[in-house]
Design a protein around this nucleic acid. Sequence first.
DNA 1: GCTCTGACGATTT
DNA 2: GAAATCGCCAGAG
Length: 102
Amino acid sequence: MATKLQHAVWTKLSEIPKGKVVTYVELARAIGKPKAVRAVATAVGKNPNLVVVPCHRVIRSDRSVGKYASGVDKKIALLKSEGINIQKRHVPPEDIFVFDKK
DNA sequence: GCTCTGACGATTT
DNA sequence: GAAATCGCCAGAG
């Protein structure tokens, strides 16, 4: 099952271009709930559609990779494969994607 | 309807 | 710089 919040999150995630990552804050802001970062994180973690939902492109606002269901190390490897020079503790700000805010 | 928990954030110690 | 604390929203029991 999927709540509307989760759907909103996944939809936004699918809009992230390859080679870019997004922070939970930006993602939360994109769905109109900038304070609901925790709810957003929960939604991402429960993502049932790994194909259209690149959850590995989601990082924390402090540029740390955060967590990953299949292992943080895997997440980092995937992002590096997309051209992102990511590290466990920090991610290059220039590779962080920002949603078009209104 | 209340309480606990969570892939978090920001601030303080 | 790392750990602890408080605050935040939504979902699950």
